[in-house]
Nucleic acid binder design. Sequence first.
DNA 1: TAGATTGTTAATCGATTAACAATC
DNA 2: TAGATTGTTAATCGATTAACAATC
Lengths: 225, 225
Amino acid sequence: MSGRRIPDATVERLPVYLRVLHDLATTGQGTVSSEQLAEMAGVNAAKVRKDLSHLGTYGTRGVGYDVDFLSFEIASRLGLASETAVAIVGMGNLGRALANHAGFRDRGFPVSNLYDNDESKVGTEVAGHVIQHLDELGAVAKADIGIGVITTPPEVAQDVADRLVQAGVRAILNFAPIVIAVPAHVTLRKVDLTHELQVLNFYQQREGADAATQPDGSAAWLREI
Amino acid sequence: MSGRRIPDATVERLPVYLRVLHDLATTGQGTVSSEQLAEMAGVNAAKVRKDLSHLGTYGTRGVGYDVDFLSFEIASRLGLASETAVAIVGMGNLGRALANHAGFRDRGFPVSNLYDNDESKVGTEVAGHVIQHLDELGAVAKADIGIGVITTPPEVAQDVADRLVQAGVRAILNFAPIVIAVPAHVTLRKVDLTHELQVLNFYQQREGADAATQPDGSAAWLREI
DNA sequence: TAGATTGTTAATCGATTAACAATC
DNA sequence: TAGATTGTTAATCGATTAACAATC
C-alpha cells in the first residue's frame, strides 16, 4: 500500500537507495531484487521492501524492481526533479571546502551564494563565486535559495540562522557546534563533526570493554590487578 | 537505576548534553535542572531525565544536576578521559579543511596523521603535518590511531577502509558517498553531505505540501485547476 | 507449471512521553 | 514544612523483522 506519510526512518534511507540505484544503472543492470539492494545499501531485505512499500507498489513479484523506474520514483519523492540552490554562510576552512565540493552541483544542489561578515573576505572569489557580505542576505529573492548552510563559528550561528529565515530560507543545514532554534515551518538538520568522533569513541571503547568481558561477567582487567 | 547498557538513542544525545554543560560551566552556573538542560539541548525534560538515569543517579531531587559533576560523568562514559588521535585519509578540499579544524584538537581529538596516494601531495604540509603516502599506513603502531577519517573519492573508500582496519584502526568516520563494509569489531559512522541536502529537500517540500493542504484533506493546488 | 520475489501481516523490540511518588 | 525537581513507572508510539500468501 502506498501510504501517504513516509516514516522518518524510511526517509533517512531513501538517499542511500538512490545512490545504490544510480550505481546499478551505471553498470547497466536493469532490475534489482530487494535482496541485492539491501546488500548494497547495508540493510536487510525486509526493510527495503517495507521502505519501498511506503512509496508505492513499484516492484514485480518474481522479478524485482526496475532500476531506472525506481530511481526516478525515489528522486521524485525527494523533490529532486528540479535543482535546489544552496547558500553557504561562513567562508572558513569548512565553508570553502563545501563551496568547492563538486558533489553538490553534480547531485542537483548548485552552490549559488557565499556569505561572510569578514570585510577582508568579502569581494574575493571562492569556487567561482564572489563572497558577499552577510548584510546582503536579505536582498536575495525568497525563492532563490533553497537551502542555507551554516559554517560559521558557533557564536554567530543563531544570528545567521535568523537572517536566513528572515530571507525566506526554509531549510538549513547547520555545521556550527551549537543548538540553534528555528520556526516550525523551517526544516533544520545539523552535522557536528566532533559529535561524530565522540559517539565513535563511545562505541569503540564499549566494544573493547565487551571484548574484555569474560563469560561470567567480570571484566578482564580485574584479573590483572 | 544505572542500567549497564546505554540505549543508542541516548548515546547520540550525550555529546549534545556535554556541549550544553560546558557552556553552562563557562557561564559559572553550578547546577542545572532537567528542564533547563532540555531547553538548551532542544529536547524535552522527560527525555533528559530518562537519558541521564541510564548513566546513574547523579541528580538531586528538588535541586537538579551539578554541572561540573555531570559533565565529568558524561565525558567519562564517552571515553573522553584521554585523547584519541585521528588520522585523515584523502587530502582534497574536505580532508584539508578537517585537518585545519581546530575543534578536533580542542575537544580531545588531535589530528596525528595525514595520508594521500597522490605523489604530488605526499611530503607537503597541511596544518603542520607532512602528508604521508597511503602505503605508509601499515607502519603505524596499532594504538597510535584511534579514529580513521576517510575523505577520499568513493572509488577508493573501501580500499582505504580495508587498509585502516589492517593497520588496527577500530573506529572509522566515512565522508565518501558510498556504503563501505568493515568487520564487526570496527565501529563505522558516515557523514554524507549530499544525503543531508536530499533529506532536507524532502521535508522542505513536504512542509510546503502540508501547508497547501486544506483541513478537509484536499490539496490547495487542486482548486487552482 | 515451478521458481522467484514482492507486498503485507503480525510479532517484537526499542524509544518517547506524561505522570507522579520519592525526596531533597 | 512547602516547593521544587528527580528517578521511575507504565502507556504509547514508531521501527524492525520474520514469515508467508500473493503473484509474476
